[in-house]
């Protein structure tokens, strides 16, 4: 059993089952929407987790890349008539390019200095989106044209699907593929080199690993994950505002990584699920909602300091041994 769980493809397999079976127990499209939001967030969080959990680099500006993807999907079709799907690709490529250019100088910084540099980057992106209203619609946000998949399905196959269902499956598929790519990356020579970088940069360098290149590769990969998630959210919602790219969203993504467990792909999904679902559960407490959210975050981190998934795994393992 545990050997099975430790297999490389265990996580994508678990996710396939989860994505496939969940709709059977979800009573309405509201729950489908929540699940879709979890998948989309989790997708971005997996990318960020590669950077934080495996390469050991913090980014407090990842919502910037998320925003680039989101606004690419919104602005390019509206302003330049680019078909939606190409806009998504362009957003991802642009994100990769920007990550490459920004990453080269930024990733030389360490620890909290890297944190503040990425934070600055994220704020710059958010500020451009907020200020250049003639392109982005400014603080009031901008509508996102749909991809036309629903129409296509109807005309080609006579299929009628609801937006919520359609995006549940798109986001679910994205998540499974994203997780699969991530586990393969982690298990590749690149991944092992990454973990070496995480453990000790100097030791890794001595062992002949091009540390700077490794870090840059992961930074670019994580930026692409964030941009694709951003595009997905924009297309799913049909409307986005600059907060998508804001500092608070960056913090939320980092919190999801740490809460679920750094270096755990499954943890990324759990972290995203907790922070998406929790506010929905806490609505019954009205004014005490934020107080409880903060309290729960602290309690989780104090008792499961390695994150929920690694923490629980350790608990279970400890019990099994005893």
């Amino acid at each position: 059993m545990s050997a099975l769980l430790n297999h490389r493809l265990a996580v994508p397999a678990v996710l396939i089952v989860l994505v496939a079976l969940l709709p059977l127990v979800l009573p309405s499209s509201f729950y489908l929407r929540i699940a879709t939001l979890v998948w989309i967030s989790a997708f971005a969080v997996i990318g960020l987790n590669l950077l934080m959990g495996y390469a050991g680099q913090v980014s407090l500006g990842h919502a910037g890349f998320f925003g680039i993807g989101a606004y690419a999907a919104a602005v390019l079709p509206a302003q330049l008539g680019v078909p939606g799907i190409f806009a998504v690709v362009i957003g991802a490529v642009a994100s990769a390019l920007i990550a490459y250019l920004v990453g080269r100088p930024i990733l030389r910084l360490k620890g909290h200095y890297l944190a503040v540099a990425t934070l600055g980057f994220g704020i710059l992106v958010a500020m451009v989106i907020n200020n250049e209203a003639w392109i982005t619609g400014g603080p009031d946000g901008i509508a996102v044209a749909s991809l036309g998949i629903k129409k296509l399905l109807k005309s080609a196959f006579g299929l009628k699907v609801k937006t919520a269902e359609l995006w549940y499956w798109i986001a679910g598929a994205m998540l499974v593929v994203g997780a699969w790519v991530a586990v393969n990356l982690v298990d590749s020579p690149t991944g092992r080199a990454l973990r070496a970088v995480h453990d000790s940069e100097i030791a890794a360098r001595v062992a002949g690993i091009d540390v700077a290149r490794m870090k840059l590769v992961v930074f670019v990969v994580s930026a692409v994950y964030a941009a694709l998630a951003g595009s997905a959210l924009a297309l799913f919602n049909g409307f986005i505002t600059p907060d998508t790219a804001g500092f608070l969203h960056s913090i939320e993504l980092v919190t999801m990584v740490v809460l679920g467990g750094m270096g755990s792909i499954l943890g990324s999904v759990v972290g995203a699920a907790v922070l998406v679902v929790l506010p929905q559960l806490l609505t019954m407490f009205h004014d005490y909602e934020h107080l409880l959210l903060g309290l729960l975050m602290m309690v989780f981190m104090i008792f499961l300091r390695a994150g929920i998934v690694p923490g629980l795994r350790a608990l279970v393992a400890g019990r099994g041994a005893a």
């Binding site: 934080m52 913090i251 980092v254 919190t255 740490v258 934020h290 975050m297």
Partner: peptide, 22 residues
């Protein structure tokens, strides 16, 4: 949470700030 990683501690303080604001 003594001994936890610095990122974990940061998330705890972020939780604390949300709590205090709440």
């Amino acid at each position: 949470a003594r001994g936890a990683s610095s990122v974990t501690l940061i998330i705890i303080t972020i939780g604390a700030s949300i709590f205090l604001r709440g």
